[in-house]
Write a protein that binds this DNA or RNA. Structure first.
Length: 806
RNA sequence: GCCGAAGUGGCGGAAUAGGUAGACGCACGGGUCUCAAAAACCCGCGAGCUCGCUCGUGCCGGUUCGAUUCCGGCCUUCGGCACCA
């Protein structure tokens, strides 16, 4: 066939797949279900990004490969269309998101996704902005609320002044808004939270059992941030008791002062009259700082003495209490014991405020703790009865035990993870289904009244008041209390877009049901997801939220599993000519242009060939064209124009070896996501066929099936031309013979003193005694043995001989 | 600062259990075909020189008959966490 027109071939098969429902799976009847999930995109006005395609194609190859292996593969797609990305774009262009989103979805699906050759089952798509969908997003909220996993709390929140809404901790990146990179400020507001911390322990521990990309697990571990330590009770002199969290209770004898966070509620009670004004001034000064300024690197320590003292429970010493902003209210108890000899931050503070530095862990390297903190291991000193114990092990145990007997300490684990702040003061999202009643308080909207429809507002600008634009709609706001029938007001915030995406994969198999979010039978059959491929940027956002929600639904009795994805694979990032792609650089790749010129198959294959899929790749301009050249070459080898195909199976050993070794390699390469090497193997096979002029039907049929996951349109076309009336994806993955996949003759490498001096072609499985004379006789080796004695001989079976000479 | 990944030709990248470094491709050079070009096909392509040898996988050292691979110490890049007690 050789040079083919990708436009014609691909259009033909697109149509055929749609007409014959090739990509649809019988969900209820499937015998070997395989749920192949890819991260659904948000339908931006800009269209699909090459990064989306890289992710989708890598996932699709797995879906198609599993289909050829005989699985019933379910590969659905949807649109994550609520949220600020859509809303901000609509605002900027003076449009309404409800009008734009359907157009964008249409364009994504019809002119882009369908042209890439993904094995998508469009009979089960999801659009998070449809009332049929967000009804169940609201059901999630109500269900969590009823089960005590959603609550409302007033407290400091992250506020983006540009997006005019609160953000979750996970959406603040280096102090900036995840969406618009504006500096995030703190505001005191009442907000809805999900109790993500309720499952911190399980979310962390189960990571060890998950078949996930290691770097994703590492990111989640860091984010959940487990610290083992103890709560220790201190008593203010003539005042109340309070506790501090420490990971180093072994250094208690070195605690020479205490520090409260400036926001600590107890400060007001303990501050002495003479210090009150100064403490208040400090609190006000700190309140004006942005979170970024406050946590800036290398910032000089600030603080103020409260006038109060507390008693160190291990030695009854009176130590002063300070307020300082290096202690954060949101972690531990908001108060710490300071051990300047063994903690860098405390050391810095002690120097500035002239506080005593007492060494309690001896270093073996003559460390001077007056000059710097020693955070390491060593025997305890200056620690009364505990002297000599190894600090971090025995010391901790003994000191905590000693205090625990008096009720003054207990072992604790602290997590860095915070509860998920889910309310947003924006328009384009599912309204939070809650009604406030003067008599009954906040009441969840009854399930029968869901969905709470998002009203069609013409003015949906966020105003920064701390209330959503929905609050400006009296028709939406005013309602009746579902419990007592009295007057009620609706919650006007919408929920975080990440709630929509935390459960979409349960919906895909059940899109036909309007009376339940997901069908129990189908869920049992298809979930958890068998394979999820996506970007690692969602490690602590979507992936953590959806793990949490799964666990929550499990604990509420709605799911019988607690982890949503059996396997998660994080693909790499694409750069172009070694540089990150960005609008400002003007180096964004336009996938449509390449697909139109060279075809989706060539584009898919080049994306997969340019680098290791799990690490990403460097997009070079000539690559797609070169790949089209390879596909032409492959087509020419499968269906030669000037030579008939030999209908008999190949018998020559070289072809048999190439055929079977390539089947073996391509299969194992796909299984480990090593697509670039799989394609290289296919190229080698094609090169061999041209070189040896082997044109054989069995070989052609094998090659077509091997390339099918990568280049599905061309594979179908060739398969049809080879005389098959059914789709190549109804066929099965070729099998290989292990014996034939091995080289018939082995090339021994002959080394002298570890250097390659010659090569010998020998039969497989020879004994060293049989090889030795052959090696010693070979002229190239003899040259190196002249006037030398062989003192050692190393044989690696079927591979190598190394002679050590002197 | 802590944790993780990675550094290989002009370039993208291979090397699955310590055993031929550079698979496959791009770019480049040469050739065949052609009036010519393009396309296609074939050959070459890490560096150095005394042309069959030496060097060569970020740097320094170690283990080994043999190290891109293992160990120790550095340097650089990327990613996660970060005044988290």
């Amino acid at each position: 066939m050789a040079k083919y027109d990708p436009g014609l071939v691909e259009a033909k098969w697109r149509e055929k797949w749609a007409n014959e429902k090739t990509n649809e799976v019988d969900l209820a009847g499937a015998a070997k279900p395989f749920y192949n999930l890819m991260m659904f995109p948000y339908p931006s006005a800009e269209g699909l990004h090459v990064g989306n395609l890289f992710a989708f194609v890598g996932s699709d190859i797995q879906g198609r490969y599993h289909r050829l292996l005989g699985y019933d593969v379910f590969e659905p797609m949807g649109f994550d269309a609520f949220g600020m990305h859509s809303e901000n774009f609509a605002l900027k262009n003076n449009r309404h998101p409800a009008e734009m989103v359907p157009k964008n979805i249409e364009r994504f699906r019809e002119t882009q996704l369908k042209k890439v050759g993904l094995m998508l089952d469009w009979s089960h798509q999801v659009d998070t902005t449809s009332a049929e969908y967000y009804r169940w997003t609201q059901w999630m909220f109500v269900t969590l609320m009823k089960n005590g996993l959603a609550y409302r709390k007033t407290g400091p929140v992250n506020w983006c002044p540009s997006c005019k809404t609160v953000l979750a901790a996970e959406q603040v990146i280096d102090g900036e808004c995840e969406r618009c990179s504006t500096l995030v400020t703190k505001r005191e507001m009442a907000q809805w939270y999900f109790k993500t911390t309720a499952f911190a322990k399980e979310l962390l521990e189960e990571l060890d059992t998950l078949n996930w990309s290691e770097r994703t697990k590492v990111a989640q571990r860091n984010w959940i941030g487990r610290s083992q330590g103890a709560l220790v009770v201190f008593k203010v002199v003539d005042g109340p008791e309070f506790s501090v969290f420490t990971t180093r209770p072994d250094t208690l004898f070195g605690a020479t002062y205490l520090v409260f966070s400036p926001e600590h509620p107890l400060l007001e009670t303990i501050v002495t009259e003479s210090q009150r004004a100064e403490v208040l001034a400090y609190q006000q000064q700190v309140a004006r700082l942005s979170e970024v300024d406050r946590q800036a690197e290398n910032r000089e320590k600030t603080g103020v003495f409260t006038g109060a003292y507390a008693v160190n429970p291990v030695n009854d010493q009176k130590i002063p209490i300070y307020a300082a902003d290096y202690v954060l209210m949101g972690y531990g108890t908001g108060a710490i014991m300071a051990v300047p000899a063994h903690d860098g931050r405390d050391h810095e503070f002690a120097l500035k405020f002239n506080l005593p530095i007492v060494e309690v862990v001896a270093s073996d390297s003559h460390f001077d703790v007056q000059l710097g903190a020693y955070p390491g291991e060593g025997p305890l000193v200056n620690s009364g009865p505990f002297n000599g114990l190894a600090a971090k092990e025995a010391g901790q145990e003994a000191i905590v035990e000693f205090l625990a007997q008096k009720g003054l300490a207990q072992k604790t684990v602290n997590y860095r993870l915070r509860d998920w702040c889910v309310s947003r003061q924006r328009y384009w999202g599912p309204p939070i289904p809650v009604i406030y009643c003067e008599k009954c308080g906040p009441v969840p909207v009854p399930e029968k009244d869901l969905p709470v429809l998002l009203p069609n507002l013409t003015d949906y600008q966020p105003d920064g008041s701390g209330l959503s634009p929905l609050a400006r709609s009296p028709g939406f706001l005013k309602t009746t209390c579902p419990v007592c029938g009295g007057p009620g007001e609706r919650e006007t915030d919408v929920s975080d877009n990440f709630l929509c995406s935390a459960w979409y994969f349960y919906r895909y198999p059940s899109t036909q049901f309007n009376d339940r979010p997901f069908d129990p039978e189908l869920t049992k059959k298809w979930l958890p997801v068998d394979l999820y491929v996506g970007g690692n940027e969602h490690a602590v956002l979507h992936l953590l939220y959806s793990r949490w929600l799964c666990r929550a639904l499990n604990s509420c009795g709605y799911l019988d599993f607690a982890e949503p994805y059996k396997k998660f694979v994080a693909h790499g990032m694409i750069v172009r000519d070694g540089a990150k792609m960005s609008k400002s650089r003007g180096n964004i790749i336009n996938p449509d242009a390449y697909i139109n010129e060279f075809g989706a198959d060539a584009f898919r294959m080049y994306l997969m060939f340019m680098g290791a899929y799990l690490e990403g790749g460097d997009f070079r301009d000539g690559g797609v064209k070169a790949m089209k050249g390879f596909l032409d070459r492959l087509a020419g080898a499968v269906l030669p124009e000037n030579a008939p195909l030999d209908p008999n199976p190949p018998t020559d050993s070289a072809t048999l070896f190439w055929l079977h070794s390539v089947i073996k390699a391509v299969g194992s390469d796909i299984a480990r996501f090593s697509y670039n090497t799989a394609i290289a193997r296919l190229m080698e096979l094609v090169n061999h066929l041209y070189k040896s002029a082997v044109y054989n039907k069995v070989v052609s049929e094998t090659l077509v099936r091997l390339v099918a996951p990568f280049a599905p349109h061309l594979a179908e076309e060739l398969w049809e031309s080879l005389g098959h009336s059914e789709s190549v994806f109804q066929a099965s993955w070729p099998e290989y013979d292990e014996a034939l996949a091995e080289k018939p003759q082995v090339e021994y490498v002959i080394q002298v003193n570890g250097k390659v001096r010659g090569k010998l072609f020998l039969a497989k499985g020879l004994e060293p005694t049989e090889i030795e004379p052959l090696v010693l006789e070979s002229p190239t080796v003899q040259k190196w043995l002249a006037n030398k004695t062989v003192i050692r001989k190393i044989y690696v079976p079927d591979k190598l001989v190394n002679l050590v000479v002197k």
